[in-house]
Amino acid sequence: MGKAILVGIAVVLVIYAFFDAIATPRQQVKLLPKPAWLIVILLIPVFGALAWIFAGTKRMRPGPRRGPRPPRGPDDDPDYLRGI
Protein backbone atom coordinates (compact mmCIF):
# COMPACT_ATOMS: atom_id res chain seq x y z
CA MET A 1 0.00 0.00 0.00
CA GLY A 2 2.80 2.42 0.88
CA LYS A 3 4.58 1.82 -2.43
CA ALA A 4 1.38 2.51 -4.36
CA ILE A 5 1.01 5.87 -2.61
CA LEU A 6 4.62 6.82 -3.40
CA VAL A 7 4.21 5.80 -7.05
CA GLY A 8 0.96 7.78 -7.23
CA ILE A 9 2.64 10.88 -5.81
CA ALA A 10 5.53 10.51 -8.27
CA VAL A 11 3.15 10.19 -11.24
CA VAL A 12 1.17 13.25 -10.16
CA LEU A 13 4.40 15.21 -9.66
CA VAL A 14 5.68 14.34 -13.14
CA ILE A 15 2.34 15.15 -14.80
CA TYR A 16 2.15 18.47 -12.96
CA ALA A 17 5.74 19.43 -13.88
CA PHE A 18 5.25 18.41 -17.52
CA PHE A 19 2.10 20.46 -18.03
CA ASP A 20 3.51 23.36 -16.02
CA ALA A 21 6.56 23.36 -18.31
CA ILE A 22 4.31 23.37 -21.38
CA ALA A 23 2.22 26.26 -20.02
CA THR A 24 5.15 28.42 -18.86
CA PRO A 25 6.11 31.21 -21.29
CA ARG A 26 9.60 30.96 -22.80
CA GLN A 27 10.66 34.19 -21.10
CA GLN A 28 10.24 32.62 -17.66
CA VAL A 29 12.24 29.44 -18.37
CA LYS A 30 15.80 29.41 -17.08
CA LEU A 31 18.89 27.16 -17.23
CA LEU A 32 17.73 25.04 -20.22
CA PRO A 33 15.55 25.62 -23.28
CA LYS A 34 11.92 24.64 -22.86
CA PRO A 35 12.07 21.48 -25.06
CA ALA A 36 15.11 20.28 -23.09
CA TRP A 37 13.17 20.67 -19.83
CA LEU A 38 10.33 18.57 -21.23
CA ILE A 39 12.78 15.82 -22.18
CA VAL A 40 14.47 15.95 -18.75
CA ILE A 41 11.11 15.71 -16.99
CA LEU A 42 10.15 12.64 -19.03
CA LEU A 43 13.52 10.84 -18.99
CA ILE A 44 14.39 11.44 -15.33
CA PRO A 45 10.86 11.50 -13.90
CA VAL A 46 11.06 12.44 -10.22
CA PHE A 47 14.37 14.32 -10.23
CA GLY A 48 13.59 16.10 -13.49
CA ALA A 49 10.19 17.20 -12.18
CA LEU A 50 11.70 18.46 -8.92
CA ALA A 51 14.46 20.27 -10.83
CA TRP A 52 11.84 21.97 -12.99
CA ILE A 53 9.76 23.04 -10.00
CA PHE A 54 12.68 24.44 -7.99
CA ALA A 55 15.15 25.64 -10.65
CA GLY A 56 13.44 25.74 -14.05
CA THR A 57 11.34 28.87 -13.87
CA LYS A 58 11.55 32.47 -12.84
CA ARG A 59 8.53 32.79 -10.60
CA MET A 60 6.94 36.20 -10.67
CA ARG A 61 6.61 37.72 -7.23
CA PRO A 62 3.95 40.33 -6.65
CA GLY A 63 5.56 43.70 -6.11
CA PRO A 64 4.36 46.62 -4.07
CA ARG A 65 1.29 48.43 -5.30
CA ARG A 66 1.78 51.67 -7.15
CA GLY A 67 -0.49 54.63 -6.74
CA PRO A 68 -2.73 55.69 -3.90
CA ARG A 69 -4.43 53.02 -1.86
CA PRO A 70 -8.20 53.26 -1.59
CA PRO A 71 -9.69 53.76 1.87
CA ARG A 72 -10.38 50.53 3.74
CA GLY A 73 -13.26 51.69 5.87
CA PRO A 74 -15.33 54.81 6.56
CA ASP A 75 -12.99 55.98 9.31
CA ASP A 76 -10.06 55.91 6.84
CA ASP A 77 -11.87 58.00 4.21
CA PRO A 78 -11.04 61.73 4.53
CA ASP A 79 -14.22 62.77 2.68
CA TYR A 80 -16.35 60.77 5.11
CA LEU A 81 -14.57 62.22 8.14
CA ARG A 82 -15.08 65.79 6.83
CA GLY A 83 -18.82 65.17 6.66
CA ILE A 84 -19.12 64.15 10.31
Rank of each mutant, 00 (worst) to 15 (best):
K30W: 06
V29P: 02
F19G: 04
A10N: 05
W37C: 08
P25H: 07
R65K: 13
I84T: 06
I44Q: 08
L31F: 13
I84G: 06
K30P: 12
V7P: 05
R82P: 03
R26T: 15
L43D: 07
Y80T: 07
K58M: 05
A17D: 03
P70M: 05
G73C: 13
K34D: 05
K34Q: 15
I5W: 08
R65N: 04
P62N: 05
P71A: 11
Q28Y: 08
G67V: 02
K58Y: 04
M1K: 03
K34I: 06
R82S: 11
T24G: 01
D77T: 02
D20F: 03
K34C: 07
D79K: 12
D20G: 01
R66F: 05
G63C: 06
R82W: 08
A10W: 01
P71S: 09
I22D: 00
I39N: 09
V7Q: 13
K58N: 14
V46T: 06
R59E: 12
Q28D: 14
L31T: 15
G83Y: 01
M1V: 04
L13V: 01
Y80C: 02
G63A: 04
V7M: 10
M60I: 13
R82T: 14
I39T: 14
F47M: 11
V46R: 03
G48D: 04
G73W: 08
A55I: 08
I39C: 11
F54M: 07
P35G: 10
P45G: 06
A49Y: 03
R61M: 09
F54A: 10
D20A: 00
L43I: 13
W52D: 08
P62Y: 08
L31R: 15
A51C: 14
I15G: 01
A10V: 03
G67R: 09
A36P: 06
P45T: 00
V29H: 10
Q28K: 13
D77K: 11
T24A: 12
G8E: 07
R26D: 15
A23F: 11
V7T: 07
T24M: 10
I15W: 00
D75A: 10
M60K: 11
L81C: 09
P71H: 07
I39R: 14
D77R: 11
D20N: 04
F47N: 09
L13P: 02
A10Q: 07
A21Y: 08
Q27Y: 09
I44K: 03
L6E: 06
I39F: 13
M1L: 10
L32S: 07
V40P: 03
D20Y: 00
P71K: 04
Q27H: 11
A23P: 04
Q27R: 14
P68W: 10
L13C: 05
K34H: 07
G48M: 02
I9G: 02
A23L: 14
P33F: 13
G56T: 03
I9S: 00
P70R: 12
I5R: 10
P78A: 11
A4Q: 10
P71R: 01
L6C: 01
L31I: 15
I41C: 10
I5L: 05
P45R: 09
R61H: 04
G83K: 07
L81V: 12
M60W: 03
P70F: 02
K3E: 11
R26M: 07
R72P: 01
F19E: 04
L43F: 12
R82V: 14
